[in-house]
């Protein structure tokens, strides 16, 4: 039953058609919310009592690291679908999401480093959270390199899926590193289960920025996956009709 549902909704053709319709909605929502969130955060939110204005990097840094981990989770789910049900689209989505994951992890690392200069007095610290995020970045690069190493693309897809599934073991370590080890990095400011330690005047723009960046990254994902799918399926009739 699950297998039938998955195969029905996972044809590359329907994915390209559906996402073509959804793309304008996603990109508009994403950019609109990012502009609102960042303008609010950068200009209207009050300065932090301890960090002053440097804390405003939070409106970029926190959404970036949230999506650095979420994208990997998404890839792991796709990898599982590809391994268990041999869904072609799932492999295409992993390949398309990996560079976006690498990019957003880089932004998370970079913004954190810059934020560290006025706050901690150093741009890099070998503490648990920063090091494990760097490892996540290397994982993204590893996945991309592995996929690019073989000329047989079906083989690359399968090997990449196996690696992504195995690599998911690092995600809880990255997530809980600030709680498990003594580190310079502060514990998570916002949590899904509630109990946020941040003032509403800073929390609301942060939430809006997270949603905005989410929609923007989904839009970027739609573009990269569309180009990849069209390239991979170039010999199929539906692609010719689509083009």
């Amino acid at each position: 039953m699950i297998s039938v549902i998955i195969h029905k909704f996972s044809s590359p053709k329907s994915f390209v058609q559906i996402t073509k319709t959804l793309y304008p909605l996603f990109i508009f929502t994403g950019l609109f919310m990012l502009i609102i969130g960042w303008t609010w955060g950068l200009l209207f939110a009050p300065p932090d009592a301890v960090q002053g204005n440097s804390y405003r990097i939070i409106f970029l840094h926190v959404p970036a690291v949230i999506f650095a981990e979420l994208i990997y989770f998404f890839m792991a789910l796709c990898a599982l679908m590809h391994i268990v049900w041999r869904v072609r689209l799932a492999a295409y989505l992993i390949k398309s999401a990996a560079p976006i994951g690498a990019m957003i992890t880089f932004i998370g690392l970079f913004s954190g480093s810059i934020w560290g200069i006025p706050t901690w007095g150093t741009w890099w610290q070998w503490d648990a959270r920063i090091t494990s995020t760097l490892i996540l970045f290397i994982m993204y690069l590893g996945i991309l390199t592995l996929h690019g190493s073989f000329s047989n693309l079906e083989k690359s897809d399968r090997l990449m899926s196996i690696l992504v599934v195995i690599g998911v073991v690092n995600i809880p370590i990255i997530k809980k590193s600030v709680d498990w080890w003594s580190t310079l990095h502060q514990p998570a400011s916002i949590s899904v289960s509630g109990g946020s330690s941040i003032d509403p005047s800073m929390l609301y723009p942060l939430i809006i920025s997270v949603i905005g960046l989410g929609f923007t990254l989904i839009s970027l994902g739609i573009l990269t996956s569309r180009s990849y799918i069209l390239g991979r399926e170039k010999n199929k009739k539906w692609v010719l009709d689509h083009v």
């Binding site: 490892i135 590893g142 996945i143 390199t145 690696l163 195995i166 690599g167 073991v169 690092n170």
Partner: peptide
């Protein structure tokens, strides 16, 4: 090189 890149992150735990 590929082996290092793919499995070194897994050695973290």
């Amino acid at each position: 090189m590929l082996g290092v890149l793919t499995t070194l992150p897994l050695a973290l735990p």
